[in-house]
């Protein structure tokens, strides 16, 4: 068989494997449970909770995995039955988007304000060439030597 014929066949085989029931059954309780939090107040992720309530919820998930349910279907079932509070993080849609976006928006707005203020300050400074005033033209060695001179003077 030539390569030109082999490649599409391998591709089809790969896609079939990807969506085969065998792959679906590879879903573990940990894969699904890590998106949920225990509802007994311990605030642990479901796979990490060693209390009875956590064990019960893990059993529910394990049963659904055995029945061949996929992750989104199990998640929907868990939310329907136990409420949105069982999710370890807010969904990224609707009002809950504010939970995800607000920190970044706040930092960007504050950062923009700082940038504007610093720019205003620096624009008022007299234009200095690199040769004037700025310590960055001095080599690092010179900078340290200056500091050392001062220190040694103090020391003496």
């Amino acid at each position: 068989m030539r390569w030109s014929e082999r490649v599409p066949r391998i591709g089809v085989l790969f896609i079939l494997l990807l969506f085969s029931p065998a792959m679906a059954s590879a879903l573990t309780m940990r894969d699904v449970g890590k998106d949920f939090i225990c509802n007994c107040g311990c605030n642990n992720l479901l796979p990490d909770c060693d209390m009875e309530c956590g064990e019960q919820l893990r059993k529910v998930i394990a049963t659904k995995i055995e029945q061949g349910w996929d992750k989104p279907k199990i998640a929907a079932y868990m939310i329907d039955n136990y409420g949105e509070k069982l999710l370890a993080a807010p969904t990224k849609k609707g009002f809950n988007l504010t939970a995800w976006l607000t920190p970044f928006v706040a930092i960007l707005v504050a950062g923009g304000a700082i940038f504007a203020v610093v720019r205003r300050w620096t624009s008022r400074q007299p234009a200095a060439s690199d040769a004037q005033g700025s310590e960055d033209l001095a080599s690092l060695e010179q900078r340290y030597q200056k500091r050392l001179d001062a220190e040694l003077k103090d020391f003496d």
């Binding site: 998106d35 409420g83 949105e84 509070k85 993080a89 809950n96 939970a99």
Partner: peptide, 20 residues
């Protein structure tokens, strides 16, 4: 805040903090 606005209890746990 979510409960006050939407009337729904939500949890903000490790996945949120780790991602943000």
């Amino acid at each position: 805040i979510a409960e006050a606005v939407r009337g729904v209890k939500v949890t903000v746990g490790p996945p949120f903090f780790n991602q943000v």
